[in-house]
Design a protein around this nucleic acid. Structure first.
Lengths: 136, 136
DNA sequence: ATTTACGTTTACGTTAACGTAAACTTTTGC
DNA sequence: GCAAAAGTTTACGTTAACGTAAACGTAAAT
């Protein structure tokens, strides 16, 4: 059930080069098993790669992505560990929320502008000769 | 009413260096007026700088940010221009929506994990000796 | 059996996005 | 009136995140 993947399997699936995946390993983001020299990626490795790439799309550096992703495999044995983990999660959550605020602002900004453009176009198509009026 | 800013005014406000702002100018993202040699930034320049920095926080390169921001100062004189502008806006909007999907997934992912951590901690604090049970 | 495809390590190259320093001019505070 | 602060251009340096190429091992297909 737990699938195994080669480096080019994952490269194809996520549309990156093997070089990129090896680089992420060198940076401590993924740690695949080995069959001799060859890297063998588990389902969990695959998930981590997906998380790294999503982090990158959201504007995180590899180091920042690692900080977040590593929280998902942090030890949770003792209450103390759980409490510091919860603190760190809260800290990262705030960063994500900041990004959401930025993103929502960008989208609603664009939507308003788009609406104005549509209005203006409708104006132009209805009464093309008096179009200048709409600007007042 | 239309305020003027020096380069260090904006650098302070947005917590970047003057070098960064000059670099954005060299890349065509801002085009401040000049008083002799000195750059004079208008309110509109200031808005553009804010947009660039928000774009960066959302993971856009300067070139990508420029593509989006330039749409907000595109010519809208003729219906044809408005139509192609609306097409480009739609294209960029999809990119923003993709990011929002990524971001929502990241946040809800983290929230679920956080909830599990809280449960586990509550378990540990209530019956510390039988904590191992919670793992089954 | 030997291309062909895929894997490995090592190492140098590249690009974006600035940092840093020099050499100089222009304002501004006292 | 003059030192300190802020501005300018030019140019070289730096870092992250890979790309690219060489030189080599291995497995699969023809």
């Amino acid at each position: 059930m737990d699938q195994k993947f080669s480096i080019s399997d994952l490269a194809r699936e996520f549309d990156v080069t093997p070089r990129t995946i090896r680089y992420y390993e060198a940076e401590g983001l993924i740690a695949p098993a080995r069959d001799g020299q060859r890297r063998i990626y588990s389902g969990r490795d695959r998930v981590r790669l997906a998380l790294v790439l999503r982090g990158k799309r959201l504007g995180f550096s590899l180091a920042e992505a690692k900080e977040i992703i590593d929280l998902y495999s942090a030890p949770q044995g003792e209450a103390f560990q759980l409490r510091t983990l919860l603190e760190k999660l809260d800290e990262k959550r705030e960063i994500l929320e900041d990004k959401r605020r930025d993103l929502d602002a960008a989208i609603s900004n664009m939507d308003k502008y788009t609406a104005r453009c549509r209005d203006r176009l409708a104006e132009l198509e209805e009464r093309p000769e008096t179009a200048a009026e709409a600007a007042e």
